[in-house]
Write a protein that binds this DNA or RNA. Structure first.
Lengths: 294, 294
DNA sequence: GGCATCCTCTGACTAGAGTCAGAGGATGGA
DNA sequence: TCCATCCTCTGACTCTAGTCAGAGGATGCC
């Protein structure tokens, strides 16, 4: 790896942990230990199950329990068994808790403001733009791809979002019933597979692969959430699916697409796909692509 | 302040404290408490006086003493009275200490690498560029201006750097003896003043103001360290000097400059200075500028 | 030489942030 | 109905990271 890049990253780390890290603790932990503050924050407006809190924050169950006891005795939260499964307990903010959370929120704003405050307008705009870029790319680096069942809730969420988007973007809308969509079975081993991309456990994209016997592999239902675009995720899906198709002995990868999806078409070209004649009669397709793989 | 900017800064803070902050502690504190690691780092190759360490890290004397005891008993440092003043004690790394410090250094590299590692070449370049920008601007926000005596070591450092730079940049070099440089007395109250810009206590620029009786105020010896350029520091100096000249009842601010200093000339124009006829016979000057102030 | 001041160290604390090993109630399946 | 499993809680610890109040040697100045 390029040493001058490493160097710049180290300088960044240093500056940022000093300016942001130190201030962060000072602002947020002003009159409450940061453990409690983080918990209060993570409970959110609607409440949370204790086990989920523990998962999200990666904390020991005993520790969380103790923190909850502290918040409870300060009158900030109530903890009650969940009606469905009385082993699980649900935490909810009281009005006082909500108020406390709002002050934490205000302090986060103060902290952010204190970083911008000494700068002039131009500098602020530049800083914010650069922060957005760092944010996006660091987030991109945490994206993980998993194979899941197409019926998994996260998969379903992505597919719903995908259909909704097609409905808006296609000239004549989109009706799943009219399309040659594969059944869930076709995207489930051994007939295929379904990939999900996640950051911090949240689904942000999906892509399916059909592996029909003695025929080219076919990419289906590739979608990236709007807020996750520009992170190279489409490319990553393609590379991953290509590798998996090759593992399954296929030497051709293909897909069909609609003319409304300009960015995707550009991606296919730049990833080495060639336009070919229609290989199916998908009514929503305008272009068919193919790539030889090894 | 713009709420969408605040929002972006908050998103940035969150991402960064997660990705960088958490990893930071995990990498660096792998087998040594971060307090000790920080201290080990700050001692440096050449050793340090205990009091200076305390100052730099902002820690309690008892605490530092205890940390040093721990490092000493691990054979990483030696602590000895300073020969000149035996109340002060000097810490030096042993060979083992140097080795330990080198592994910490390696881990910082690893951490930086782990941020870049999941990204492709383009993304890496973009991330590094954005980090550099964030770094510069956050640093810019910590710059403080102080009035110091022109004989102060930091002032002397800036002036030496300034002369050295002029020597390189002027077509015919620069010889202080030939120039109309003000004596230190002219930049010292009540005849004038001398400003120093610092980040983290390190001097990164200077600017002097002459306040001759019943005459326009005059800017002298304005210099910004090469690594601190592009932070708007020149503008900040001008604004500060203008305000101080006005406080002292002057309504005209002027300066002379050399044609080799293109960026500075641009700055003077954009800050509202107008070119005027020569008001002195400085041999190194090609342009003379003036601005009416209130 | 005497005394205030400086610098470092030690002892005695505190608070936060966790970890670990059960206890004990709730649930689900045989 | 019984038993394994799940979820949460409690008690008993540990480690960091600090703070505070002096003790005691070294120095500088009168």
């Amino acid at each position: 790896m390029d040493p001058s890049q490493i160097d710049q990253v180290r300088r960044f780390n240093r500056t940022v942990t000093e300016r942001v890290g130190v201030l962060h603790d000072r602002y947020l932990g002003r009159d409450r230990p940061i453990g409690e503050a983080r918990l209060l924050w993570e409970i959110g407006e609607r409440g949370q199950d204790v086990r989920r809190l523990r998962e999200r924050l990666g904390l020991d169950s005993g520790y969380v329990s103790r923190l909850l006891r502290a918040l409870e005795s300060d009158g900030l939260v109530t903890v009650e068994p969940q009606p469905r499964d009385r082993r699980v307990r649900t935490v909810r903010l009281t009005d006082a808790g909500r108020a406390e959370r709002a002050t934490l929120d205000g302090r986060s704003d103060e902290l952010a403001g204190s970083l911008l405050e000494p700068l002039n307008t131009t500098q602020r705009a530049r800083l914010v733009a650069a922060m957005a870029e760092v944010d996006r790319l660091l987030t991109a680096a945490t994206v993980v791809l998993d194979v899941v069942d197409p019926d998994h809730p996260d998969a379903q969420y992505c597919l719903r979002s995908y259909f909704m988007e097609l409905r808006h973007r296609f000239e004549d809308g989109f009706d799943p019933a009219r399309s040659l969509l594969p059944s869930a079975g076709e995207l489930r081993p051994p007939h295929g597979l379904f990939l999900i991309a996640r950051t911090h456990g949240e689904p942000i994209g999906c892509a399916g692969l059909k592996l029909p016997p003695r025929a080219p592999a076919e990419i289906k239902r590739m979608w990236v959430a709007p807020h996750a675009r520009g992170l190279g995720l489409g490319r990553r899906f393609l590379a991953e699916l290509e590798a998996r198709a090759a593992q399954h002995g296929r030497n051709v990868l293909r897909l069909d697409t609609n003319k409304a999806l300009g960015a995707a078409i550009g991606l296919y070209h730049s990833f080495g796909f060639q336009e070919v004649a229609a290989f199916n009669d998908e009514p929503y397709a305008h272009y068919w692509f193919e790539k030889r793989i090894t």
